[in-house]
Design a protein around this nucleic acid. Sequence first.
DNA 1: GCACAATTTAAACGAACGTTTGATTTAATG
DNA 2: CATTAAATCAAACGTTCGTTTAAATTGTGC
Lengths: 212, 212
Amino acid sequence: MSQPDTKERILDVAEELFARQGFHATSLRAITGAAEVNLAAVNYHFGSKEALLDAVFERRLTPLNRERQARLDAVQAVAATEGRPLRAEEVLRALIEPTLRLYESGPGASSFILLVGRALSGSDELVRQTFLQHMGALFALLLDLLGQALPQLPRNQLFWRLQFALGATGHALRWAGGGLELPGGFTQPPSVEELIDMVVGFSAAGMEAPCP
Amino acid sequence: MSQPDTKERILDVAEELFARQGFHATSLRAITGAAEVNLAAVNYHFGSKEALLDAVFERRLTPLNRERQARLDAVQAVAATEGRPLRAEEVLRALIEPTLRLYESGPGASSFILLVGRALSGSDELVRQTFLQHMGALFALLLDLLGQALPQLPRNQLFWRLQFALGATGHALRWAGGGLELPGGFTQPPSVEELIDMVVGFSAAGMEAPCP
DNA sequence: GCACAATTTAAACGAACGTTTGATTTAATG
DNA sequence: CATTAAATCAAACGTTCGTTTAAATTGTGC
């Protein structure tokens, strides 16, 4: 018999299958089968399949958002004591780095990274809405801080460039989470460090592009 | 009775529903119901649901890729006659602009734009594979041209930056296709022209960022 | 050890899915 | 008009889905 904690085992398997196959394409029978629990366990412990999705996000996103908030606070504090304006690069890094660093916290985390990447892309509206619900007001704060870092950029341009940065980041998360296969296999995947530097550098340069 | 062309009506509806709800979440009954044709019509005319997805991509992507190829050829020719190296901005524009300009070709095209945006994000592996199959060797050509435009950039960096650019572009396509709702609604959607300029400008700046 | 709640189990529910069938209608051809 | 192929149709196929039920099992407090 496996470990006794049925809820955790269900969460682990659901996280992986929701990420790799999508929410709709994953059946409760596939989840409970892989988790070696009874089919009815999901409805007993979580209530429904949708509530299970919510619990998958909740488990990881609560501590992750706490860390993101702390890093954004720290970035603001450092800029204030140094008497300089915020830099777009450090704001983006405070958002992106904790997410990709989840990769180092265990084998199951890469599935969650992939799930976030796919939630960002909004292919499944239910997954995207559940994700955004857990993100709360973080996007508004992000927009505000980037507005301070790029005061010369019109609000409209700022909003869309942030969207593009999120699009690039989501793509990076999907790669890092193993959700996309390398075409031709001619390029080896980078380390987490390198990927963070690349996507932050790319996004920061895009946001700081001269206004056309 | 409606128009006689059953196949076209099925393609139109399938394009819209596959884009808005996803491939797995769209049933043949929903498609045939909205198209006002018999349930068996899909299997009769296309063979299967998967073959229908293939036909949806085929109808738009064949002429679209012809135009993309022509524009990439033109960009190379102009740079050659002017005796200067390629610019990343014009290469990216040759790829992105024809796609987003589909928006002006009719009301149904926005659904296809959304579908491409979601295929790029790879949330449904079957949709992504079908899409990539129709894209053929275009990605390899793109990588080659961008390598000419940015000769100082290591091949690895180039590959990943192109991925980020595709991620940003995919996000723009999903917005333009109406697949994502504006949060808070505080920003009005831009025109197609503006969106093209913004995403091309963002991506080109990201690709040309100094090597860290 | 007994009563009681929490959990797990096997089985079944109705609904929806993609696909197939065979009859029927429509269109085209000589 | 008669014949034949193409297209449409209603109906059913077997499968899988999320959810529910009620009995069986396990764990807990007295």
